[in-house]
Design a protein around this nucleic acid. Structure first.
Length: 415
DNA sequence: AACAACCCCAACCGCATTAGA
DNA sequence: ATCTAATGCGGTTGGGGTTGT
């Protein structure tokens, strides 16, 4: 791991960039395009290190940067994404076109944190501060298997596998009142495809945010959201049906494009969904299925080859044999299969109807209203108990790494 | 007006990862 | 397989502006 050699060089300018330096760098990149940063300073006539040039370009000179204050929608989205992603500023920034990770990080540290605290929310855990203080009294759950689950380039990535650290806490949306109205859970058009009615949009957006995380994040959040889903009487306006709320879904199932595709299915298509899942606590693979009317059948399966096959509203993915093969594989699976989860997060999955409606819905408000039947205080509490058990169950297994690989396919077909 | 305290944000630093020799 | 340069990311710092006393 060599450090950038230019860091050792002397006589390089540091500190704020002058307009002349900006102009030189801008001119150079305009004329030559982006290339090797280490050679940019010399070629552009700058007495800076390449790293410094790169940073200046990314954070200031890039033409696609959005200037000015953050909108309320952007702030809400940042909070929502932070709840799922933690301090992964670059990935949060990827969902906010024109904004840089640095900018978002600064906003978070200087502004949003403060706002959340004022609302009694701990910005690290996204829990109520009173709850966080209560948690301090309890001994943390320690499971050494956590640390084997993934490896992602971040100094503090271990926090995602450590129950005592914030990133793995529950999806916090039920904690929030909206700071203000938000127009979309995701601004990035590629990943927010929905033609939902306004009454269901909030739920969908909430789900959309939940599923946009990697397995370890889902240990708390994904299970929670589905265990407690209650879409109310109008099932035709929902786009997912959980046939068996007593069975858990593997975190990867919630975490990848397949799930995304389900949630983003146009509501007039009754998707029939089979969930390749694992029993809550014994880690046994199972298949459960049903359509959104609650009719039990078996229509979606997973295989370890590539194509997602769509037949009417039935999704078929794989064969019984492959599922069994996977079960066997799980039993003998090595502990660690590294996954670049962000590839899944950023993979747009386009179903037939790709028109994005920028719905005008608050991100959080609906999910805290018991009358919506979405999340209630009661269900939240029971989830917390339930979730603790599930965390242990998930942490003891490496299944989702395998699942994630299975889902790392290119989706070419549409409903 | 002078000073201190606070805040914001651009830039740096150090580490991890990636690419390629 | 190993080493090193290059790149990317997140935490931290420090300068400048603003506000309060």
């Amino acid at each position: 791991m060599g450090r950038h050699s230019c860091c050792y060089k002397q006589k390089l300018r540091k500190g704020l960039w002058s307009p002349e330096e900006d102009e030189k760098l801008l001119n150079y990149i305009t004329n030559h395009g982006l290339g090797c940063w280490s050679s940019v300073p010399k070629l552009a006539g700058l007495y800076r290190c390449g790293k410094s040039c790169r940073l200046r370009w990314i954070n200031y000179l890039r033409p696609d940067l959005k200037r000015g204050a953050f909108s309320q929608q952007e702030e809400n989205l940042i909070i929502e994404l932070h709840a799922v992603l933690g301090n992964r500023w670059s990935q949060i920034a990827a969902q906010l076109p024109g904004r840089t990770d640095n900018e978002i990080k600064n906003l978070w540290n200087s502004c949003i944190k403060k706002k959340l605290r004022q609302r009694g929310i701990d910005p690290n855990t996204h829990k109520l501060i009173s709850e966080v203080e209560n948690d301090k009294d309890k001994p943390p759950i320690v499971d050494k298997s956590n640390h084997k689950l993934a490896s992602v380039g971040s100094n503090e990535v271990s926090s995602f596998f450590d129950p005592s650290k914030p990133s793995q806490t529950s999806i916090p949306s039920e904690r929030y009142n909206p700071l203000e109205i938000s127009t979309s859970s995701k601004i990035n058009n590629n990943t927010c495809k929905s033609n939902l009615t306004s009454t269901t949009a909030t739920q969908e957006l909430f789900l959309d945010s939940i599923i946009s995380c990697r397995p370890s994040d889902m240990v708390g959040g994904g299970y929670f959201s589905f265990q407690n889903l209650n879409y109310g009487p109008d099932m035709n306006n929902t786009s997912i049906y959980m046939p068996d709320l007593n069975s858990s879904i593997t975190s990867t199932m919630l975490n990848n494009s397949v799930s995304t595709s389900i949630f983003q299915t146009p509501i007039h298509v009754k998707p029939t969904v089979t969930l390749h899942s694992y029993n809550n606590f014994n880690n046994n693979p199972s298949i459960s299925s049903g359509d959104i009317d609650g009719n039990s059948n078996s229509t979606m399966q997973f295989q370890n080859n590539t194509n997602l096959l769509v037949n009417n509203s039935t999704i078929t993915w794989g064969t019984e044999d492959s599922v069994k093969a996977d079960k066997d594989a799980h039993e003998h699976l090595p502990l660690q299969e590294e996954i670049k989860w962000c590839e899944y997060l950023n993979t747009p999955f386009l179903l037939g109807n790709t028109v994005q409606n920028q719905t005008s819905q608050p991100i959080y408000i609906d999910v805290v209203k018991p009358e919506n039947g979405f999340i209630t205080e009661e269900s939240s509490t029971s989830w917390q108990q339930h979730n603790q058990q599930h965390q242990q169950a998930f942490q003891l297994s490496d299944i989702y790494n395998k699942d994630l690989q299975r889902f790392s396919v290119a989706f070419g077909q549409t409903l």
